[in-house]
Structure formats: structure tokens, C-alpha cells
């Protein structure tokens, strides 16, 4: 009797979370879907018209879409490569016996807590500025011509900034995972005469595989939606050279007021994210069973 009672109550306590999340997800998503079939511009209200898949056709055949899709891939892939490579290296390094490990860890972790607008502006002005930035001073000192980062290599510059922000996250997750490695296994490998590379390849890397998958999938979710770093550094330029899908949709919907086109883009972004999400859910679903 009491159990039935508490079960009903338990269900009741779930209601606020479920209803809110359902509303947050479904209402706007349905509206986006609906708008994506309309010819709807905020500048000419009242003239909305059903135009079928026209918005999708325009969005998907626009050269800007290809460029930003490609940029999105480069941005996500580049940052993943740097943060995973650097993260594994840092995790192994911080796992060694060193003096002042806590201070080292605090310094490595710090960039993750810097808000995106601050890190983008600090890198843009104080480090990467072609005249007054520290890199330019350094290049001059070496007798080289300073690079105009955001004009010459805009996407790469953004990749560097974003990697700096996410390296701590990868390093911390991988360090946590590496610390649970069975030391006896490594000692046994030592006795068998295994070198550092075979130890890394056959023992450390397999042990880290789950954490690596987690880093890849979680970072991908966040990296697909990079926005502030692009807004304050290049505004997507020059041309579309550093525009990703998120930024393209933002310009289309809130700067050009094209609700229909922006919505079609939004739905495309949702589909891309879903493909990634399916893999992430599998990974975490497995974890729940343990």
C-alpha cells in the first residue's frame, strides 16, 4: 500500500522536470520545423506563405552552406585532434611523480573556466594582433614578418583558440582515467622487458579508450555549436572563411531576418547533431548498465 503510494508520488516528482524539458525541446523545435516550410521574413511581416522544401533547397545548394559545413568539420576535427593528442600527453605527464603537481594541474585547468568571449578577445588582441600582439613582437624580434592571423589563417586561428579552451577538459578527463590504471600491470610489463611505446600502445591506450570516446563525443556536441569565438574575432570572415553552420544560421536569421531560411538551416543542424548524439547515447547507455 505504502509502495503504491510512494510510486505515485515519485512519478509526480518527475513531472516538473519532464514537462519543462519536453516544452523546451518540442515547442520551439516544432515551430522551427513549421517556419522552415514558410517564406517568412521579419522585415515583411504578414506575407508568410507556404513554399514546401524551397528553403531547404536554397540552404543546401548555397555555396555558403558547403563552405561552412566544411569549416565546421575542420573546426571540430582540428580541435579534437589537438586536444586529444595534447590531452593524452598531458595526462601521462601529470601522472608522473613531479614536484608541485597540484599547482601544475591548477594552471593546466585554468583556461576551461575563462568565458569564451574573454579568451577570444585576449587571443585576438594581446597575442595575435599583427601590430601590437605578443606574437608579432616575437616575430619582429626574430626578424620575421608577423602573421596577420585573422586575415591570413582565420579558421586555424579560431581552432587554436578553441583548442586552448578545451585542452584542459580533455587532459582532466584522461588524467582521471589514467589514474585508475592497474599499476601492477605496468610493472609486469616492465619485468617482461616492454619498452615505453609498447606499454603505451598495449596497456595505456586500451585502458583510456572509453575516456577518449567520451571526450570525442562530448567535445563534438559543444564544438558543433561554437559561436562566441567566431563572433568576436572574425565575424565569420573574410568572406565565409571562418563561418561555421551555427554562425551561418545566426547571420541568416537574426542579421538578414530570413526566418524561413534560418529555420531550414536549424533543422539541418539538428539532424547533424542527432547523428553524433546517437553514438554518445550508446556509450553512456552502456555505462548505465554497469
Amino acid at each position: 500500500m505504502a509502495t503504491t503510494n510512494s510510486r505515485a508520488l515519485a512519478r509526480l516528482m518527475l513531472v516538473p522536470s519532464v514537462v519543462l524539458l519536453l516544452a523546451w525541446m518540442l515547442v520551439p523545435l516544432c515551430m522551427t520545423l513549421y517556419f522552415s516550410f514558410l517564406d517568412y521574413n521579419l522585415l515583411s511581416p504578414g506575407t508568410e506563405e507556404f513554399i514546401g522544401f524551397m528553403n531547404y533547397e536554397f540552404f543546401l545548394t548555397d555555396p555558403a552552406f558547403f563552405e561552412s559545413f566544411f569549416n565546421t568539420l575542420l573546426l571540430v576535427g582540428g580541435v579534437l585532434l589537438i586536444t586529444l593528442g595534447g590531452g593524452i600527453g598531458l595526462a601521462i605527464l601529470l601522472d608522473q611523480a613531479i614536484w608541485g603537481r597540484n599547482y601544475v594541474r591548477i594552471m593546466v585547468l585554468a583556461p576551461f573556466f575563462v568565458m569564451p568571449t574573454v579568451s577570444a578577445l585576449v587571443w585576438k588582441n594581446m597575442l595575435m594582433n599583427p601590430v601590437n600582439g605578443l606574437f608579432a613582437h616575437f616575430a619582429n624580434w626574430l626578424g620575421m614578418t608577423p602573421i596577420d592571423f585573422f586575415a591570413q589563417i582565420p579558421l586555424l586561428s579560431i581552432i587554436v583558440i578553441v583548442s586552448w579552451q578545451w585542452l584542459p577538459f580533455a587532459a582532466l578527463i584522461l588524467l582521471t582515467a589514467i589514474q585508475s590504471l592497474d599499476r601492477e600491470q605496468l610493472e609486469a610489463a616492465d619485468l617482461d622487458g616492454a619498452g615505453p611505446f609498447s606499454k603505451f600502445y598495449y596497456i595505456v591506450l586500451p585502458h583510456l579508450s572509453r575516456a577518449i570516446t567520451a571526450v570525442i563525443l562530448i567535445e563534438t556536441i559543444f564544438l558543433l555549436s561554437i559561436f562566441a569565438e567566431i563572433l568576436v574575432t572574425t565575424s565569420g570572415g573574410p568572406g565565409y572563411a571562418s563561418t561555421n553552420i551555427t554562425y551561418l544560421i545566426y547571420t541568416q536569421s537574426l542579421l538578414q531576418f530570413d526566418v524561413g531560411g534560418g529555420s531550414a538551416g536549424g533543422i539541418v543542424a539538428v539532424i547533424i547533431a542527432n547523428i553524433v548524439a546517437i553514438f554518445l547515447m550508446r556509450l553512456i547507455g552502456k555505462n548505465l548498465e554497469d
Partner: peptide, 30 residues
């Protein structure tokens, strides 16, 4: 108070986190 559906519910909540903000940008703005 776990039920058979608890796990699915948790996964579903997680899935809302994966909705890219641009997917709901316009409706939220309006």
C-alpha cells in the same frame, strides 16, 4: 524509486542537451 522506464527517461533528458541551440534560435527569439 526505479522503474523500467527510469533509464530511458535519463537518456531522453540527456538527449535534450544535444539539441543545437541554433535549432531553436528563431522560435525562442520570437
Amino acid at each position: 524509486v526505479q522503474t523500467k522506464r527510469t533509464k530511458n527517461l535519463l537518456m531522453w533528458m540527456l538527449s535534450t542537451k544535444m539539441l543545437p541551440p541554433v535549432g531553436v534560435l528563431i522560435p525562442i527569439y520570437l
